[in-house]
Amino acid sequence: MAIPTEHLADKIAAALHADMPWMAAATETVWHAMRRSVREGDPGLRLPPLLPSTRQAKRSETENVCLI
């Protein structure tokens, strides 16, 4: 499905977020993908791979991470 304008992408993303606010990370990814598809003139919506999970990371699990 092609998204003809970034404005329509914004409206669709807002509706998705309003219907499923707990899926904010996923709807934001879809929103950016829709806008990118419009800008690049893709013939259809191109989504990156998504891995839905029922587990949400707690803030303490994601802060103070040291990568060596």
Results as ranks from 00 to 15, higher is better:
residue 9 A to H: 11
residue 67 L to W: 11
residue 52 P to Q: 05
residue 21 P to W: 01
residue 54 T to Q: 09
residue 21 P to A: 00
residue 39 R to F: 06
residue 4 P to I: 00
residue 62 T to V: 15
residue 35 R to W: 06
residue 29 T to D: 09
residue 25 A to Q: 11
residue 34 M to K: 02
residue 3 I to M: 15
residue 48 P to S: 07
residue 41 G to R: 02
residue 21 P to C: 03
residue 55 R to M: 10
residue 22 W to V: 00
residue 44 G to P: 01
residue 40 E to S: 05
residue 47 L to H: 04
residue 46 R to A: 10
residue 55 R to W: 08
residue 16 L to P: 03
residue 6 E to N: 04
residue 67 L to V: 07
residue 2 A to M: 13
residue 31 W to C: 02
residue 29 T to P: 01
residue 2 A to G: 04
residue 54 T to F: 14
residue 49 P to W: 05
residue 8 L to S: 09
residue 35 R to Y: 04
residue 20 M to Y: 11
residue 30 V to M: 13
residue 16 L to F: 14
residue 6 E to Y: 03
residue 45 L to Q: 07
residue 16 L to T: 01
residue 68 I to L: 13
residue 9 A to W: 13
residue 9 A to Y: 14
residue 66 C to W: 07
residue 17 H to S: 06
residue 15 A to G: 03
residue 23 M to Q: 04
residue 45 L to F: 13
residue 33 A to E: 14
residue 44 G to S: 14
residue 67 L to S: 01
residue 7 H to P: 01
residue 2 A to L: 13
residue 49 P to L: 08
residue 47 L to A: 01
residue 41 G to I: 03
residue 42 D to I: 00
residue 1 M to K: 01
residue 31 W to M: 03
residue 23 M to G: 00
residue 51 L to W: 12
residue 51 L to P: 03
residue 29 T to Q: 12
residue 9 A to L: 10
